[in-house]
């Protein structure tokens, strides 16, 4: 953790080059579909009930920002991202 300067520092992305691993707790999915709207190359929904489907558990770096956004925004806290 960086020091407590009390002053905001510029946002950094220390994860950019590292691998990302996504896990889902799909039983909790409420089928909002927000993840598919944000990162359609990584997430999809089952046709019958809209539950999330993981298309790419280790997406390439250009997808990382969208995946983090999808994980943060998921209203059922289904998506866990490890970097």
């Amino acid at each position: 953790m960086t020091g407590r300067t009390g002053r905001p520092t510029a946002p950094t992305d220390p994860h950019g080059a590292t691998a990302m691993k996504i896990t889902l707790d799909a039983d909790k999915c409420c089928a909002a579909g927000q993840c598919v709207l944000i990162a359609p190359e990584v997430f999809d929904q089952r046709d019958e009930d809209g539950v999330v489907v993981l298309l790419d558990a280790a997406p390439p770096a250009e997808q990382h920002t969208a995946v983090r956004e999808a994980a943060a925004i998921c209203p059922a806290a289904v998506i866990e991202v490890q970097e």
Binding site: T2, R4, T5, G6, R7, A10, T12, C30, P75, A76
Partner: peptide, 21 residues
């Protein structure tokens, strides 16, 4: 967003953050 200073989270319930729906 880059806030590295102290960060206080105050909740009136005794529980860690949980989901309401």
């Amino acid at each position: 967003a880059g806030w590295t200073g102290p960060l206080t989270l105050i909740g009136d319930e005794p529980h860690l953050p949980y989901d309401r729906p």
